[in-house]
Write a protein that binds this DNA or RNA. Structure first.
Lengths: 228, 228
DNA sequence: TCACATTGTCACACAATTGTCACACACATA
DNA sequence: TATGTGTGTGACAATTGTGTGACAATGTGA
């Protein structure tokens, strides 16, 4: 999970960054609107914490520009007197706001709430690799000419995670982060979920793809079409 | 594993040193910024515990100077009232901080967390020498055109250690430190692991490389391509 | 409310890895 | 020759990692 933190107050940005790191996030920092926008495009974060008062280009504009391109969760930071502005912020597509001063714990609570909420939104997309198609919006997996099967939410995210990293080993840490989010899930559940996916896949798509385990490292998705 | 502890308070430094030694670290002490910097250059530690309040040159400056040259993990020691300073410390590249007073257990926990984090930042994926390739991320060893073999975690680290020092004799002490880390491993296990590696390698890559023993000194990896 | 799917938890089997031990052998030294 | 040290080798136990099934808890919709 990557968080982009945009604030020109270095001290505050560092406090937030530190808080996020402790919660297991990877942190990217930006000090002004332009930098924020560049970082958003280059580093592909999962979440943005955006101060409203920024040099060069104010937070609202940044929020709007980013929202035009992406559904990424955005949380605005503002001072209490800006309440009217806040409402404007929601118009521009921010997912939540928090007024300064705030405690790290508050911030994290908001972040989690927002992540929970936005996770449910469904940007209609299909992830494809060779003859494998994962319909993220319909929760369906299809391989070659076989009829598709339905996947549960967790199964879908697991499959997505494996497909994004196809051909590479995916560590349990990454899986847990992608499937359950920070601070939840454990190795036992990963095993269980991998098992359920394998059973489901092997039943419907015999010998098409396999989820391999590399002891001590993680799992790896292989398509039968791959040349070893 | 060597830890450089920088603190002008001898009592505290001794407590920390004792804690680290218990955990199997080798400890180097320094009492001021200048000494710290010299020790950092001369003794090549794996980790630095750095008090912020130091005579001659304060901890932040030391931190900055060291960080300009190296990615070595640095943990700052500070008193609670310095919180703003701490944030400055993060600017300068410290990896974590801990406020006095703290318990030895806390300190060790932080140290381990930091070591875990920083180790991941440096994913050198393949170690190569001549026609020998060691795939660190896949736990695989490949020589010439033979198919690769899987290595266990210990075997991989042993092989890595030998390859880093290829052509030179590696002492058991170094092997133990590199493979098992501080506080674990003994000569018997080194022999055992060397044996297992030799069997595995000779079976798959006959007459390609050899692990030679130099009685009383250590082991040495030789490639058949090397001219003696 | 019930039925059903999904998700989390637990227990157990099995395999790979790692640690421990015993012993053989080579070599040096007295 | 006897003794001791360093090393190689095999057997085995302990530990850890992984796969699997059963079942409870939770959520969801009829």
């Amino acid at each position: 999970m990557k968080a982009l933190i945009v604030d020109d107050d270095r001290t505050l940005a560092d406090v937030i960054a530190f808080t996020f790191k402790r919660e297991g996030f990877e942190v990217i920092l930006a000090e002004d609107g332009e930098a924020a926008y560049r970082r958003f495009q280059d580093d592909n974060p999962d979440l943005i914490i955006l101060d409203v008062n920024l040099p060069k280009e104010d937070g609202f504009k940044v929020c709007k520009r980013i929202r035009e391109q992406s559904d990424i969760p955005i949380i605005l930071l503002t001072v209490r007197s800006d309440e009217e502005d806040i409402l404007g912020g929601f118009h521009l597509g921010a997912d939540d706001y928090i007024t300064k001063p705030f405690s790290p714990r508050q911030l994290i609570a908001r972040v989690k709430a927002v992540l929970r909420r936005t996770k449910k939104k469904n940007p209609a997309t299909v992830r494809e690799w060779g003859n494998i198609s994962l319909f993220l919006n319909r929760h369906e997996l299809k391989i070659g000419d076989y009829p598709p099967i339905k996947l549960s939410g967790l199964e879908l995210r697991m499959m997505d995670c494996l497909m994004i990293n196809i051909g590479q080993i995916v560590t349990p840490e990454i899986i847990i982060d992608q499937v359950w989010g920070p601070n939840a899930g454990d190795m036992d559940m990963v095993r269980q979920l991998i098992h359920r996916l394998r059973v489901k896949i092997e039943k419907q798509f015999p010998n098409q793809i396999s989820i391999n385990n590399i002891p001590g490292l993680g799992y790896e998705l292989k398509s039968i079409e791959d040349i070893d």
